[in-house]
Amino acid sequence: MMAKVRNKAGQGRGLFGYAIFYLAFLYVPVLFLPIFSFNDSAFIAFPLVGFTTKWYTEMFADTGMQIALWNSLKVGMFTALISTTLGLLAAKALTRYQVPGSAAVLGFTSLPLFVPDIVLGISLLILLNSVHIPLSLWTVVVGHVLICMPFAMAVLISRMEGFDKSLEEASLDLGEDGWMTFWRVTFPLALPGVIASLLLTFIVSFDEFLIAYFLAGTDATLPIYIWGQLRFPYKLPGVLALGALILVASCVLVIFAEWVRSLGTDPNKAPTVGA
């Protein structure tokens, strides 16, 4: 017994060390972006020369960047709204009704996870081309909704499974119709999931490059703009500044989304699924 306990503790310490190494592997490479974004040199190389914020002011002054940022915000917001709305309806159907073939539907909506982005991009490009729909930010939204659906569904289904089905029945029983029951019971209870889904799908869309690259036409989203800048070495410090800001903003949004998602889910209470 003693031996086992000691053994376990030793193993635990070893794994903890590994976990720290692993987190370093995840985070340190990315940290070079903010570090060099404040370096007072056009070359991204050690040693660091001095502190400056000029890359940030230069980058903010770029009208191309401003347009691309605004485009990305628009695309992200529409994508988040559409995929979360569709995901909420689908999650309601899959968790509340006995739908034949629900596993197939779930598999179908998760398919974009398993198809390379380049294939999603070019096949949509072909379709839009053959039905003569001009490329625009709207076609980017369509592509982004596609890749965001699996995430929206996953977040919302787990949220909807987390509360008692008879709450909605109680509302119907107390005289509200289906529509009002949705607004007075289902929606407030699903709200943490809805907010998390909105934020996460927004981030996925905001950061997505390849599908937008094929479907955006002449409008550039922020990742497309960044991609274009990478060709010019003298633009790199500005890209670093922009990238650092995007990373920080994404981190803040993700942490907020996950925090909201954890709200109201009591870890001590087993989710009541089914009867």
Binding site: L167, L172, D173, D177
Partner: peptide, 20 residues
């Protein structure tokens, strides 16, 4: 007749007290 139009009310097994 759907449940919201019936002259019945129910006490659920889980009580279904609205947590919000």
């Amino acid at each position: 007749v759907p449940p919201n139009k019936r002259p019945t009310n129910m006490v659920f097994q889980s009580y279904a007290i609205f947590p919000h």
